[in-house]
């Protein structure tokens, strides 16, 4: 059985290759939700050369971070699946990340479903909030901390 091809960093120079037109619009419709956030390193500094991908069964968005480490995507809230609360899968690539990171975005207006979600339940209670977006006017806020006291929960997939 062949071994898996090892991962390597996306590096700093993908900006002319990986972004595609309207890549940040997983849902181009009028009712789409705007999700915005900032990618931050262990010193709290913005990661200005990151690439964020957001996935759901029939949605895909790709957005590179800007000089402030900020990204945004347009999505719709997926349906709950089985006993899992509605969520989006989020993949993080950046210079300095030798392997990509996988996390999840849960929705703040689903407190009951989130409380019953087996993935959130498998995470230490003190870290669960890193996976739930915050409601702000006109957008959901989802910051991603690569390190530090607020380090986002990342999953082995």
């Amino acid at each position: 059985m062949p071994p898996f091809t090892p991962s390597q960093t996306v590096g700093p120079f993908f900006g002319f290759a990986l972004p595609f037109p309207d890549g940040e619009r997983a849902d181009p419709g009028e009712g789409a939700l705007r999700v915005e956030g900032q990618l931050l390193d262990g010193a709290g500094e913005p990661v200005s050369d990151g690439l964020i991908e957001v996935l759901a069964p029939d949605q895909f968005a790709r957005c590179r971070t800007d000089p402030e480490g900020a990204f945004h995507v347009w999505v719709r809230k997926p349906a709950a699946e089985g006993d899992q609360a509605p969520h989006l899968d989020v993949i993080v690539f950046a210079r300095g990340l030798l392997k990509h990171l996988v996390t999840r975005l849960y929705f703040p207006d689903e407190p009951e479903a989130n409380a019953a979600d087996p993935v959130l339940q498998a995470v230490e209670p003190t870290r669960r909030h890193t996976l739930v977006a915050r409601a702000e006017p006109g957008a959901l806020r989802f910051d991603i901390h690569l390190q530090g006291p607020e380090e986002t929960v990342f999953f082995a997939v």
């Binding site: 990661v47 300095g96 990340l97 990171l101 390190q147 929960v153 990342f154």
Partner: peptide, 8 residues
């Protein structure tokens, strides 16, 4: 990698 590798 020093400031970007997750520590948990």
């Amino acid at each position: 990698t020093v400031l970007r590798a997750p520590q948990r």
